[in-house]
Write a protein that binds this DNA or RNA. Structure first.
Lengths: 204, 204
DNA sequence: TGCTCAAACTAACGATCGTTAGTGTAGCAG
DNA sequence: CTGCTACACTAACGATCGTTAGTTTGAGCA
């Protein structure tokens, strides 16, 4: 009986993470079997239990890491803002880190955006809390801009969802070998978000 | 004479459709068993095969219906446009039918947006073709507006994705018992889309 | 060299999966 | 009434699922 397989720094464990992330994101958690994951790594299914306690433990490990990287990206972006930043600056900075994450880490993004339901109830709650924490950052910036009259929108909550969601969708179609670089993409989305919230009167 | 015989569609088959749609949309195709579906209807799993040839046949039936309704909504909206409609009119009309569908038919929307991968290869191809056909309608309107100088955007393809995706996300959070009516919602999204494509210079 | 132990293996458990076969039965047509 | 059809049932098939038990292997170290 192997000892408690806690989060280990092991080359095999990392190969398992890579294979499982890829397959959970593309095929879905419940369509991916332990034998599928093991096959990608070149071992048998039973050997996975030397590294992770269960299939759900793999998903949770990946989910936690993905959220940590998402939140870390946000924190790094915020930390680089000047002291006298405007709401426009902060919006641009958040949209950039949001879109860049979803373009560069599409598997992690797909996992976080569509496989949470497969988590255990307690892990699911924690994941939803982390997602809410992330979304709140965007909402607060938008609310602040609206309060200062710098942004204008009929419904700030809906605008927040819209901006977050159009960025999340990037993970579904963006390919780094395509015509756009990640930097291009971020610029486009920053423009779109800024225009959505612009206080300009529409003529018609 | 008795009533039209072909009008007598099996009530049980429709109950199966309702139950399967709900569960495929919420839990996912591969997490839903035939016994789950049968249980919701109040019959045994084997009896489902009196109405559908296979589990995938149920998914395909639901997918086809959902796409037909999505495309029919688009066609009805277009048919109601005046003859001298502008690109702004057409954009507003498409966004309205898009958002209204995703708000009113969230289960169908979730199915179409996240369960296509569970279809057989040939059904998947047909589904992707229908989705492309739908998306093209939006892209053409945007391209036309850009060509006429009425819309302005850095990348029309990305703007199309963004507008479509922010509307799709509605199926994930909108609740009819919430503070917004579907009409409110459509108005908000039409405004957001119009602003995203507005050719106005941003002041800052 | 021999001991240790992480990490691979084989084999199998019980559960559940989609699906099929065969049976029972209620309602309608002739 | 008789027979046919529609549609439910029970029972079970073989496949596959996540997981466990017990065994083998091979590298590092006393």
């Amino acid at each position: 009986m192997p000892p408690a397989p806690e989060a280990a720094i092991s080359a095999t464990a990392d190969e398992i993470r890579v294979a499982a992330l890829e397959q959970f994101a593309r095929a879905g958690y419940s369509s991916t079997s332990m034998r599928d994951i093991a096959g990608s790594v070149g071992i048998k299914a039973a050997s996975l239990y030397n590294h992770f306690g269960s299939k759900e433990a793999i998903l949770w490990d990946l989910t936690l890491t993905a959220f940590e990287e998402l939140l870390r990206g946000r924190d790094l972006a915020i930390a680089n803002l000047p002291n006298n930043s405007t709401p426009q600056d902060r919006l641009a900075c958040l949209v950039t880190s949001h879109v860049a994450f979803h373009a560069k880490n599409s598997n992690q993004a797909l996992l976080v955006n569509s496989q949470l339901a497969a988590l255990s109830k307690s892990h699911y709650r924690k994941a939803v809390a982390m997602r809410a924490q992330y979304e709140d950052t965007m909402r607060e910036v938008i609310d602040e801009g609206v309060a200062k009259g710098i942004f204008d929108t009929t419904d700030a909550r809906v605008a927040t969802f819209a901006i977050l969601q159009m960025g999340m969708a990037v993970s579904g179609w963006f390919r780094p070998e395509g015509p756009l670089t990640v930097t291009d993409l971020c610029t486009i989305y920053v423009d779109l978000a800024a225009k959505m919230l612009a206080p300009l009167p529409l003529s018609h």
